[in-house]
Amino acid sequence: MVISYPQLFIVFLKLGAFTFGGGYAMIPIIERELVHQAKLITQDDFYDTIVICQSLPGMIAVNMAVLLGSKLKGVKGAFLSVLGVTLPSFIIILVIATLFFQAIENPLVLAFFKGVRVSVVALIFVAGIKLLRRNMHGFGFFIATLTFALVAVYFVHPFLVILIMGFLGYIITQINKSGESL
C-alpha cells in the first residue's frame, strides 16, 4: 500500500490537531494509523523509530514525523509531516496568545488562572513521582537527587546540568565495564 503526499500530510495534521498532552500521547495513535491500519510501517521499524526519537533531543512528535515522513516519502514527505504535526498547535497558540494577553487583566480570568496554576504544580508533581518510582535504585536516585540539588538549590544552569549528567552516565558505565573485565 502506498500513501500520497496529501494523505501523509493529513495523517500528521490530525495528530497535531487532536493529541493533547504532548508527544507521548501521539505514539499509540501513530501506531494505529500507520502500522495497524495503513500497514505502511512494520511493527519493528516503528519501535526502532521510537527508540531513536527518545534518544535524541527534540519533541518526540516532531522527530517521529521526520523519521516516518522521510521513510515513506523522502525529504518532501518529512517536510510535509513536520508541517502537518506542528501547524495546528502553532495556529491555535497564536489565537490563544492573542486572547490571553488581552483577557488576563480581567479579574475573573485572573482568578481562573490563579486556580489553574495550582493544578499545574500538581500535574508536574504527579509526572515526577511516576518517573521517580522507576529510578529508586542507587545510581539513578543519586543522579536524580544531584540534578535536583544543582538546579533547584545551587541554581546551576539546567543546560550545563543536562550535559554533565549525560557525561556522568557515560563515565559510570565505562567504570562498571572495566570493573567487570578485571
Partner: peptide, 14 residues
C-alpha cells in the same frame, strides 16, 4: 542515557 534518564526526574522535581 543511564545518566540522562534519572536526571530528567531531578529536573521535573526542580
Amino acid at each position: 542515557f543511564t545518566g540522562l534518564r534519572p536526571a530528567l526526574v531531578g529536573l521535573i522535581m526542580a
